[in-house]
Amino acid sequence: MSARDEILGRIRTALGPDRAAPAEVRRDYRLTDDRSPDELLDVLTDRLEDYRATVVRCAPSEVAATVGSALRTALGEHSPADVVVAPGVPADRRPDGAVEDDGRPAVALAGYAATVTGVAVAIAETGTLVLDGSPLSGRRALSLLPDCLVCVVEAAQVVGSVPEGLARLDPLAPLTMISGPSATSDIELQRVEGVHGPRTLVVVLVA
């Protein structure tokens, strides 16, 4: 007998011949968040800053300039070619001179100082950005290897709760949920930001 048949057989034996229908799952927890869009932006900002991410707000016309100045703050003086952007980020939102991710071997991305991407959705209550592997979010290695990550979030992409956030996502896409810079508390429980992922996270909120 194959291990598969063996295990499935054991499960059937364990559960016995007459199985009652499992009780229905009651989803009477909060499915939506009724706070106003403005309030949600404030909550998102508060949560992200609590994780020690930097949040800057700007108008749609100021995105490229805001990203550029955020990069100067994070990296100091740098070459524009140290910055790589996800292919779906519109041209008028890219910092001058940035390189587009052209699908080179993933490990080559480690040579860049910073990445600029969009997001698929942002969840205010938990301060979470979700990237979905689309051209706008970029492939997973792009938001992982360079040490500084700048994410541009549109106000319309911000939802209140986790259930609302997951409902907007495609379960078949490669998803990365990001809540602050990478961190560890493994040494005497002291929080250290930035172990393997980007040590700096900047969120540009377009509202």
Binding site: I123, T126, G133, P174, T176, M177, S179, G197
Partner: peptide, 13 residues
């Protein structure tokens, strides 16, 4: 409120 990273994937992309 949420851990820094959660990865979700289905098969091969």
């Amino acid at each position: 409120r949420m851990n820094p990273y959660t990865s979700l994937w289905a098969g091969v992309t």
